[in-house]
Simulated scan of single mutants.
Amino acid sequence: MNIHATLAASLHCQQTASPDRWEATFRQMVLFDLAADMELGFFLSYYRNFAIPGIAAPLYTNAEIQQRPVKRSYDTAIVIYELIANGLDSDRGQAMVELLNRVHRNVPGSKDDFLYVLLTLLVVPIRWVQKHGWRQPTTAELAAASRFFIELGDRMNITSVPTSYADAEGFFDRYEAANVAPSAEGQHLMDATVQVFQSRLPVPLRPLAKRLISNMLDDDRLTSSLGLPRAGSISRAALKRGLELRNAITRRRSLKTQAHFTPGEAGSSLYPNGYSLDQIGPVNVPRSPVLAGNELP
């Protein structure tokens, strides 16, 4: 449970957090202080992989996303939130790391491809918060987030993970400049996944799902590669105004005392009664004994 009574108290703690408490600092950032924006950032990071032909091709060949887009999307989010909420070295955290390693064991790709996928989860949410969040991330939060993904990368045998957020951004931008391009596979994956975003929108807005994603990605080369409509200046301005209004309201509210994510708890139509860890992950990958017995008591 969050121990900070107010937004101001939590911000002070996040500003002065010890580097040794990097997991707690990142957890506070993701599950409480900047929860809504970090969740949306994780969501957007998922799409960016489809704009890299070398990554989109094996994802398309695997067919898990096309056949079970809702499960793949929710399970991807659950894995990262399980790691953040419980800690990388907790029993549940170790089970999720094992799942990640098993799922990616035979996936083709270069060292830089795997590093890019890891860093989308760091850079994309942080950049969204910096541009649209109700407050800026603190220096301690940037360091804690970077340390989290350095440690996760180490456990996944991903080498040469940048040691600072600035270096992570540098790699991310260089990789995208060299690799973002249209592909039929990437556009098929995007089309299959849009329905997940649509399901979270009010019914009148669902036909606008692709345009809304374009506005949030705010990158013409990326949206063109994904086969999405180009965002217009009016819709961009409307999104900006809507987020500014939301932020003004957020600053006047008390800090939530309930975490944004509770391990194993019901939270979607996919797992209406909650989930156990052995339910998470692709159905076409053999289950591992390490996942058995990791349900919440």
Rank of each mutant, 00 (worst) to 15 (best):
I78Y: 14
V79G: 03
I80T: 15
I80P: 02
I80G: 02
I80N: 14
I80R: 06
E82C: 09
E82R: 07
L83P: 07
L83G: 03
I84S: 00
A85K: 10
A85H: 09
A85S: 14
N86M: 06
G87D: 08
G87A: 02
G87T: 00
G87F: 00
L88V: 11
D89K: 04
D89L: 12
S90H: 09
S90P: 09
S90R: 02
D91F: 00
D91M: 02
R92K: 14
R92D: 00
R92W: 00
R92M: 03
R92P: 00
G93T: 04
G93V: 06
Q94C: 07
Q94P: 02
Q94V: 00
Q94W: 02
A95N: 03
A95V: 04
A95Q: 06
A95F: 05
A95Y: 03
M96Q: 10
M96F: 06
M96W: 05
M96L: 10
V97G: 02
V97S: 05
V97I: 15
E98H: 11
E98M: 07
E98D: 10
E98T: 14
L99S: 03
L99G: 01
L99Y: 03
L100A: 13
L100R: 14
L100F: 12
L100S: 13
N101E: 15
N101H: 13
N101V: 14
R102H: 14
R102I: 09
V103N: 04
V103E: 08
V103W: 10
V103C: 04
H104Y: 13
H104S: 11
R105Q: 13
R105E: 12
R105I: 12
R105K: 15
R105T: 07
R105M: 10
N106P: 01
N106S: 14
N106L: 09
V107K: 01
V107R: 01
V107N: 04
V107H: 02
V107F: 05
P108G: 04
P108F: 04
P108C: 02
P108M: 05
G109I: 06
G109A: 07
G109Q: 06
G109N: 05
G109H: 04
S110L: 11
S110I: 08
K111G: 05
K111C: 03
K111I: 02
K111M: 09
